[in-house]
Computed example of a mutant assay.
Amino acid sequence: MTFGLATEDLAQLLAQNYRLIEERTLTSLANTTIQRLAVPQGQTLADARIFVRSLPSGGSADFNHFYRTNEELGAELITQPASTPCKGPHCANRALVGWSDDLFQLGTCSGDVTIGMIDTGLNEMHETFANVDLTVHRLTSEDTPPSRAYHGTAVAALLVGAPDSRSPGLLPKTRMVAVDAFHRAGSDERADVFTLVDGLSYLADQNVNVFNLSFAGPPNTVLEQAVVELVQTHNKILVASAGNAGPQSDPLYPAAYEPVIAVTAIDRRNSIYRRAVQGAHIDIAAPGVEIWTAASVKGARWRTGTSFAAPYVSAAAALLLSQSSALTPPEVRRILTDGATDLGAEGRDDVYGHGVVSFDRLCE
């Protein structure tokens, strides 16, 4: 796939039997287009990438990689009575980050900030989204089997779930825009770069301030270019889960891109999640083991994975922006990491980053 390929370069490819599968316009990303191409018969993908990158406008061309959510299924559905912050199964993890009733009661602490997420589909009819300002936009083709709703519902509920539901969110009064960029292929559930970049542009079009990205995959030059532009040109805050491939894994993306805030997961004993990716790119930790959040149909259940740590940091970033909308992405990162509670080796380390995100004094 290509990002911003010039008309004359595309014409040259078509003349050499490349085929244009799909093209989309990205109004918020360099006001350009992305193209998905099929290579000529007999040419390998690797050779095709080399050739397209040799064109004057093809330098960022790359494969249309797949990305997947970062979750380990937890316990079975547990029925709980409606809870209020903070009396319920969600409270233990909130205590780790200094979340308090005061933060919830200060309705102005979420200001006019809009949180966006790219994830699987979600169940908009779930009781946790009653009276929540939630917009859902599906990007994948109607011909593609839709993604299931359990992951996206759980992530969204952590952020904006209704306060009187079984899965209250951290910032229930905040506007959320959710993009469903995933589809099913057999037993696999995944999103490709072409759709992810389209989703990032869509969220920017919707004036989203903080992007929650609870998925991971390989490095990709097209995705990197989109991420860098969003942060450096449009001042968007991108928060991504580190991934669940294990401590010996290579870095996963988009978390490992420099402008992105990379989030790892801890349990209630402040121990690192056993499957969390580690490395020099890790910025901060948050609760991600046995997290109480919405189930896909109704009620709530426990979830585990770095996917569920990222929303804590996204919520903290939104609180900072609500207090000072002029903060830049590097400033938000610095405030969050400077205020983190140190764990592991003294100072920043490759396991916990700068430590556990803290909500203390973020909403004053």
Rank of each mutant, 00 (worst) to 15 (best):
G339A: 02
P254A: 03
A315H: 10
A242V: 07
P329I: 05
T264Y: 10
F308H: 11
D267L: 06
D267M: 07
A285W: 11
V263Q: 09
G299T: 12
A345V: 10
W292C: 12
A262P: 14
F308L: 07
P311Q: 04
W302H: 15
I284M: 10
A295D: 13
L327V: 01
I266D: 04
A286K: 09
P329E: 01
A326Q: 10
A242R: 13
R274C: 00
G279A: 03
A285I: 02
P254G: 05
A295L: 04
A265R: 05
D349N: 15
L336K: 09
A276M: 09
G288I: 11
R348F: 01
A255L: 07
I261H: 12
V332G: 04
A276S: 15
S307Y: 06
Q278A: 03
L320F: 14
D338W: 04
Y273D: 06
G279V: 08
A300K: 12
V260P: 15
G355D: 00
G243S: 09
P254I: 03
G355M: 03
V351M: 03
T304M: 04
S358L: 04
S314T: 14
V289P: 12
G246W: 12
R268A: 00
L252I: 04
F308A: 03
V332K: 09
I291G: 08
A340Y: 11
P251L: 04
S271G: 12
I291Q: 06
S314C: 01
S296Q: 15
G344K: 11
V313H: 15
D350S: 14
G353V: 02
Y352N: 02
P287R: 05
R269D: 11
V263T: 02
R268V: 00
G305E: 02
A315N: 10
P247V: 07
A285Q: 06
L320G: 13
A245W: 01
E258W: 08
T264K: 13
R275A: 07
A294D: 01
V356F: 05
I272A: 14
S314M: 00
G347P: 12
V332D: 04
A276T: 08
G339F: 02
I282T: 01
S307G: 14
L252H: 11
G353R: 11
S307P: 10
F359T: 01
A345H: 06
A316N: 03
A242C: 09
V260F: 09
V263E: 00
G299D: 05
S249I: 06
R348D: 01
A280T: 13
I266W: 02
W292K: 12
E290I: 05
A317V: 07
T304S: 15
D350W: 10
S324A: 13
P329Q: 01
A276P: 15
P329G: 01
S296M: 10
A300W: 07
H281R: 05
G299E: 06
G305T: 06
G246A: 08
A262I: 04
R268H: 13
F308G: 08
D349C: 07
T337L: 10
N270G: 02
G347K: 06
G279D: 02
